[in-house]
Design a protein around this nucleic acid. Sequence first.
DNA 1: ATTTTATATTTGTATATACAAATGATAATT
DNA 2: AATTATCATTTGTATATACAAATATAAAAT
Lengths: 151, 151
Amino acid sequence: MKIEEVLKSTVPMNNSKKIILNVLYTQNVITENFSEILKPYEISGEQYNVLRILRGQKGNPANMCVIQERMVAKTSNTTRLVDKLLLKDLVTRKVCPENRRKIEVLITQKGLDILKELDPKVIAHEEFFSKNLSSEEIVQLNQLLEKYRNQ
Amino acid sequence: MKIEEVLKSTVPMNNSKKIILNVLYTQNVITENFSEILKPYEISGEQYNVLRILRGQKGNPANMCVIQERMVAKTSNTTRLVDKLLLKDLVTRKVCPENRRKIEVLITQKGLDILKELDPKVIAHEEFFSKNLSSEEIVQLNQLLEKYRNQ
DNA sequence: ATTTTATATTTGTATATACAAATGATAATT
DNA sequence: AATTATCATTTGTATATACAAATATAAAAT
């Protein structure tokens, strides 16, 4: 559906505004769809993001600032996100012995197990949308978004 | 910047995942940039969205459910958004005489004045990003996002 | 050695969002 | 006419987010 129909726009809008609304609305659609997948596991999208970052570390601990700079939403409060994951035993947290300002966060086996169970569902989610596009269009969309962002 | 660089990804990712992350990250960049514009006016992006919907009504009142269905984020709590706008005298709210379940929300002159003052800044914001693309690319990006969303 | 600056993280607080339940009004059914 | 169903909105509550201030440690400067 075109963005004007989605938002039942009464006034015509130019293509620059349409991109903004299309990106915002598409993000909403993606996020809501993904939340449904995560619901049975009782973790939020942001918490999932942290777990993925930790798994990507391949056994090495990540500090809070490393997690932060790899998050999609850079402004979210990493401390409290890790708090939530800690309560569910999905991560461990300890003070870094070399630099006691830093915190070392590691994903637990339980965390890895949940990610493993989620993996096929996450791939299905990604393809649920991208299957509407040809492989050329997929590449093109990524390029256009990256070009669009570059101020 | 490519999305892998932005998120300092250690593991390679396929293009379907890249689209998800590109959309989510681009939304964040747009929203943060726009919040800066709105900051001096002390309204949030969602509140601005409501004001735009009300102006689009061209003098006709909008009910809560009309506002809701035209919002970009359909899940936000319209009642409380309108509460905030009411406190700042940017809208009026009264019970619809024909159907007392409904609420009629109208933008005030003060609301219209703020929108008018914001208009050029909003257009500049839209073009700040889209200026990176040719007019063909702008059309293409809109088409791809719309096609991508269509399940 | 002490002070200053920079870094890493946490905490406080106000606001926003998500979702279910409650309220009140109208329409449909018996 | 009374009951039930539907609709429109609000409210309660728990959680999330945004942003500034506080804390604690380390490094640099005096």
